[in-house]
């Protein structure tokens, strides 16, 4: 994975984006979670050769990014970083599936290439939707939304506590790695034995910290249940956002808009 500092930077960047203000940011987290889920389902419902059918769905991430003022370059950069596995698996399709599916201007295009392209497009669509969700909502709001959508409470709390202490522990880890590098100028990465000792002491500190947190919780009346009270309100904008997108997803699923468009263009 990435270095500790750059990993933390990723969090900070997304958190800063989520702290922004826009019509999309202002939507209720539940709305955004549900629309994202619907979007993902409609993307994967398309068969693997259905490259054309996927195209209209791109409107959702593009519009959401534009309306919320998210920097497209940043999102694309993150997608690129995440792509190796999918590319590695997908790139076999053109090799293995050579049946010609389409001929464009005399150039035969095999099913493998089409399905490979569709994998890449799916990848971009699904992951950008997830990033848009977190970058316009913020992690703790997503969690609150999930808990209102009946996710198990213990799990939601676990997510929140985990997120809170990532920053503390990653900070500790970064300090330890820095100390290691100061003493060890020759090698960038620790060898396994040092690495295990490094992790071991990080782990022991984590265990101690957990005990102190527990103490702090107890001293404020903790009885095994963590309570959070924050009102959440669905507004007209939420209904409109959800209704628009779900109607749009269904529409492009029912009608072959790219096909129609293409025919119109070619006819002229």
């Amino acid at each position: 994975m990435k270095g500790v500092e750059s990993g933390l930077l990723d969090f900070s960047r997304l958190e800063m984006l989520a702290a922004g203000d826009s019509p999309v940011h202002r939507l209720d987290p539940r709305t955004k979670v549900l629309v994202t889920a619907a979007f993902l389902v409609f993307v994967v419902l398309h068969g693997k050769y259905d490259l054309a059918g996927l195209a209209p769905l791109a409107l959702y991430p593009v519009a959401a990014m534009a309306l919320s003022g998210l920097p497209a370059g940043y999102i694309l950069g993150k997608l690129l970083l995440a792509s190796p596995f999918v590319l590695l698996v997908g790139v076999w399709n053109p090799v293995l599936d050579r049946g010609i599916l389409v001929t464009v201007g005399g150039l035969p295009i095999s099913g493998g290439w089409i399905s490979f392209a569709s994998i890449v497009v799916r990848f971009a669509l699904t992951l950008s939707a997830a990033l848009i969700l977190i970058a316009t909502t913020g992690f703790d709001q997503v969690c609150r939304g999930l808990s209102r959508l009946y996710a198990p409470k213990a799990f939601v709390l676990q997510l929140l506590l985990l997120y809170r202490y990532i920053f503390v522990l990653a900070g500790e880890a970064a300090r330890m790695v820095r100390a290691f590098r100061l003493r060890n100028l020759s090698d960038e990465r620790p060898a396994m034995r040092t690495y295990a000792a490094l992790l071991g002491s990080l782990l022991v500190r984590a265990l101690d910290r957990a005990q102190r947190i527990h103490m702090a919780m107890l001293s404020r009346g903790f009885d095994g249940e963590i309570r959070m009270s924050r009102p959440m309100r669905l507004r007209l904008a939420d209904a409109a956002w959800a209704a628009f997108w779900i109607a749009f997803f269904i529409l492009v699923r029912r009608y072959d808009i790219p096909g129609l468009l293409g025919q119109i263009v070619i006819a002229h």
Partner: peptide
């Protein structure tokens, strides 16, 4: 009780939630 390391005392996702933790309990 205010503990030595505030990172141990502040365990909730926002300041509001943290300050509300005790009263809610």
């Amino acid at each position: 009780m205010v503990f030595q390391d505030p990172d141990d005392q502040l365990f909730m996702p926002t300041v509001f939630d943290d300050v509300a933790f005790g009263p809610l309990n």
